[in-house]
Design a protein around this nucleic acid. Sequence first.
DNA 1: GATGAATGAGCGTTCATTCAT
DNA 2: CATGAATGAACGCTCATTCAT
Lengths: 220, 220, 220, 220
Amino acid sequence: MPTTRDHPKEKTLRADAQRNLELVLKAAGEAFAEQGLEVGVADIARRAGVGTGTIFRRFPTKDDLIAAVFERRLEEIVGAAREGLEMEDAEQGLRHFLESMLRLQLCDRGCMEAASGADYWQAPPIVRLRNELLAICERLLERAKRAGAVREEAVPQDLVVIVNAVAHAASLAEAAAPGVWRRYLTIALDGLRPRSGTRLEPDAPTIEQIEAVKQRRARR
Amino acid sequence: MPTTRDHPKEKTLRADAQRNLELVLKAAGEAFAEQGLEVGVADIARRAGVGTGTIFRRFPTKDDLIAAVFERRLEEIVGAAREGLEMEDAEQGLRHFLESMLRLQLCDRGCMEAASGADYWQAPPIVRLRNELLAICERLLERAKRAGAVREEAVPQDLVVIVNAVAHAASLAEAAAPGVWRRYLTIALDGLRPRSGTRLEPDAPTIEQIEAVKQRRARR
Amino acid sequence: MPTTRDHPKEKTLRADAQRNLELVLKAAGEAFAEQGLEVGVADIARRAGVGTGTIFRRFPTKDDLIAAVFERRLEEIVGAAREGLEMEDAEQGLRHFLESMLRLQLCDRGCMEAASGADYWQAPPIVRLRNELLAICERLLERAKRAGAVREEAVPQDLVVIVNAVAHAASLAEAAAPGVWRRYLTIALDGLRPRSGTRLEPDAPTIEQIEAVKQRRARR
Amino acid sequence: MPTTRDHPKEKTLRADAQRNLELVLKAAGEAFAEQGLEVGVADIARRAGVGTGTIFRRFPTKDDLIAAVFERRLEEIVGAAREGLEMEDAEQGLRHFLESMLRLQLCDRGCMEAASGADYWQAPPIVRLRNELLAICERLLERAKRAGAVREEAVPQDLVVIVNAVAHAASLAEAAAPGVWRRYLTIALDGLRPRSGTRLEPDAPTIEQIEAVKQRRARR
DNA sequence: GATGAATGAGCGTTCATTCAT
DNA sequence: CATGAATGAACGCTCATTCAT
């Protein structure tokens, strides 16, 4: 941090670069959100008002760009999770978190595609966020279990899976009935409640197991 | 049936065509199932043992082919739904249907992609099946509601949405833990049960509403 | 060979494809000859009057195309070598072969680049021609040695190296003085003559040795 | 030399520039030697520890940079030629020069590529060195002719052409059999010896003739 | 003067679609 | 009718060159 004067005007020498990076990420985020991960890099560049080269300078491959955008989203999601933790009521906290995640994903086709695809969960910076997210989910769940709002067998991954599921499924109907996702989130949360008759089976695989499979596949 | 002359040599040209169409649909189904909707048309043609031209003669665009394959799958799904109706126990019937659908989708990447994308639900031949499916869902649901296994507010679309959701979300984990989908289906079904504290809100949009949105978009 | 009538008019059904392949090879040959191996595939396509796709249908990568063109050239060269073998005078035969090779290479930048680059000598169809070429060189050399025109230590590869050397070096001057290559070929042939004072040292590496090195490099 | 003030702190800005230029030339030389003329300018800049802008400030195009590096190499070659002149034995002197040139070129892909391409021999600063080199070759040849080691018709360019030829052709085999170039140099030198039966024909073109052709081409 | 971020034409390659055979 | 060769727009990516800082 160059401890120069704190004038908000001071745009630091590499302001241009920073600004452009920001523009690219923003443009990419919007493009992915609206048109999915298949948008061409040239489209994104046009949106951002830069050349394609500028994008490839920072993100050697398109996948790197996707990962960066996904990372951003994950950061917001982790933020929402933290907010959930800070709420007094355990059940409300859990729901707040899930609702935030859904809102973020629903207006973002690209994020949904990335979240569904296995590959993007493996980039190193994302692994960190993922673990952080799971840790917070763990605590959210613990609190909710103690409050009697969630069955004992639930594990953190379940929350991620559920958001994914609701987001994906609701997206089809969402355009016609904004907010339907709440309908399905209610079903999911009610399904998570303690219930005598049914057991959650089988166990959800651990992240490590999932990754082992991925790597085995990649090797082929 | 064009009753042409019965020369044993003459294998009725139309029969050949039929056979080819069958081969194409089968090949496309397998290809989509294994590699997703992105497989090249040439790959499919090779699998089917025909030329690409033959495919495009019957299906003017690749999307038409996808829709046709999706239609097939839907027919199987409708079949499973009918089986569910024939079972004595209402709850078992519902679960049988949902499980069948899930099994069909989980081993078929292409079907999952098609079911998630809005467009394929609108192709005219599919509309018929979709309506049929929804009608059966209606009856499955009615029975289940009467048996006290499903809340009053549930509507047929909910079932389709739920299968889609579970299938999509489970597919990521499925490779590492075959059968996890049962875990999430349990959550969904428990969530559908009558429950005093929560209401399903908002209402799911009707098919007509969804389609109105689609068409408004297409016009742009 | 479809034993249909021998009418020269009969262009066989796939005449178009054959013709196009021919056009592509011809165009590629000319383009490489004039502008070197770096010409764009689009340029070649334009010359041939086809789309780029047509080229990639037959030659999955540009390198495959280059190899195919190189193969053609090698076939011509092997033909010239055979002609040399059929001449009565051993020395004349040798010179005839070398001159033919030079003429072929000198008006063809692409061929020279390919001949100088290690990679193109390794494609399977070319290996066959290469071995054939070396076998003929062997016999040309044997005859020449017996006639006292070439020193004992000379090996077939030497001939290939020499042609390469003369072609490459002469190409610079060739434009200004068409035919200079004869000057340098004379030097090379005189240098190959038996001579008491000097020995050819060290031995030329065998093809196998050269290839071993190539493969070791490629592995890195 | 601008005799500015002698402040010890002031490291004369021009000295920095000089140093940078030196670094760039050194880095470029190494990069070209190892990876050929196709290395990216950015790579060279990185090696040199400067920005690409710095390179383009001094060398408006990449070709200018190549020419500058080539010039350096030529200076070394001229030096080797001078050493050859100073040796007592005419034949040894000639061979010393040729060997030095070969050694320089063989470990330097970039130099070989530049020497083979016509364009780089025409850059103004190189013309001077080229002429100097040819003048020395003239004297080397004269001495060798007088000593009976070289035929009368040989001209200075022949030497340059020969080195180029041997270097290029040997480079392929060199990796497998370090030192093979000596084999081919021997052939070339023996071929240059006086010989009754053959004449060197046609005459090598003069530098002027070569350049005339180049310029005629450029105009097109 | 030095920097390296930005540029964009150009590359090799893919693939849905068309159409001559 | 069936075929598969031809098409060419579009893709992800590279790199010599320019120019704001």
